[in-house]
Write a protein that binds this DNA or RNA. Sequence first.
DNA 1: GACATCAGTTATGGATCCAAAAATAGGTTT
DNA 2: AAACCTATTTTTGGATCCATAACTGATGTC
Lengths: 256, 256
Amino acid sequence: MYLKGLRKAPIEPRMPSTNDSLDPVFIMTQISHTAITALRKHIRDGRYQPGEKLREVQVAELLGVSRTPVRLAFRTLEQEGLLERTGKQGYVVREVSADDVLCGVEIRGVLEGLAARRLAERGLSAELKDQLERCVQEGDELINQPQLSQEDIERWGDINARFHALIVNNAGSRAISDAITRNNHLPFASSDSITIDTDHLAQEQRKLQVAQLQHQLVVQALVMGESTRAEMLMREHAYIGLRYGPLFGVPEGMAL
Amino acid sequence: MYLKGLRKAPIEPRMPSTNDSLDPVFIMTQISHTAITALRKHIRDGRYQPGEKLREVQVAELLGVSRTPVRLAFRTLEQEGLLERTGKQGYVVREVSADDVLCGVEIRGVLEGLAARRLAERGLSAELKDQLERCVQEGDELINQPQLSQEDIERWGDINARFHALIVNNAGSRAISDAITRNNHLPFASSDSITIDTDHLAQEQRKLQVAQLQHQLVVQALVMGESTRAEMLMREHAYIGLRYGPLFGVPEGMAL
DNA sequence: GACATCAGTTATGGATCCAAAAATAGGTTT
DNA sequence: AAACCTATTTTTGGATCCATAACTGATGTC
């Protein structure tokens, strides 16, 4: 409840930088940034349901901050497509249809495909070639064990993320990586949102093996400079997260 | 100059809604929204050079608003890729390389191509088919006159925008139109930023005739349900704005 | 002369304040 | 009862305030 005219506390502004975990890369103590990620997580985790209206004060209290960073976060999340303005006033969590999910995946496909094509056309540096091949090598060794543990799968996820980042960030223009980053913020569209069903580890392993094989083919095409093939392979690779079709079993409620 | 502790005026908050031009669609009197468009325009027009640092107070004074809407605008424009954070403090206008421009165009190409493919696969409604064909019809009549006036070219620009909007907005998911909208905010990447060189109207007319022909072919493919062809045509169509190659003469400084 | 240090200045981020717009509730009229 | 108007509450957008972080320049040291 909003208590009129009540001050939150004797002010105590801006955290006194009690950073236990000093991030060597970038110390992002920005409250507004924290608010963005926290809110994003809340939405992903379903704390806020699609269609639900978000009130600034309420969210501010939940996150323990003032309204200012929340308002900034709302703007950012609107840009990202997680929130949406309704009529005159207020933001609601955007509803995501099955078609939206498919679209997000296809968008990632064409964008990463574009990145791969550009990369193949411009030629790989020796260093990049090395990194990509090491990526595939490591993934291969990991994935072809007789039985994968939960931890193995997570490690493969890291390798997967590295693989995609290598291609996207070396396509020669931030325009592409930006577009992909933005698209990845949409629910389910991200390449690292391959959900792991721990009840069917064998099936999951098979899926990852397919993905791994695709990585291998993409690198092959990239190294050979076969740009069209690289683009098509990368584009197809995007669909692996969807898990529809007979190969992996059709999940319920995914009538496309 | 920023005068410390001086109030801007006897407050006088929020415009008293003196709307001369009542927009029937949506009355967007939001100052922050105005700030975004104004700032975007300033950047496009070169009022702020690439690499130039933007100070909140200075921009606020230029636009005649307080810092709050400017800060919101900075966030939005950062998301759009027009601004960029530098190190710890401050936003600068993002530098755009020739490669970035090309990338923006290619991104639009793959996204609009994707939209066209989806449209062709799902089939056009009778109404949409009609609208597209009328669009092509009007464009044809306009563009095939013996000599185009400046005004004619502008009218064709409107038709062009309508054509692209029809395809993008009917692809079945806002995810696509959102991605394209965001990409269009990048300088030169927008489909309606086909620059008109008034000194060479004949040459311009020829370019628009090519674009018009491409529109025609796209609609043909869409109506016939030839999804791959529609995608490819739409993708190629994106390059028309670049004007490189012998057909339209190679502009200087466009070493790709 | 180059580099480190420290004080003064400026800019930014977060919090709060205030007025208007929107939503809500209650009462009145048709 | 439905529609309409009005009074009240809620919520938002913009402006301002304040403390800290980042920048600047001057001074001192090697």
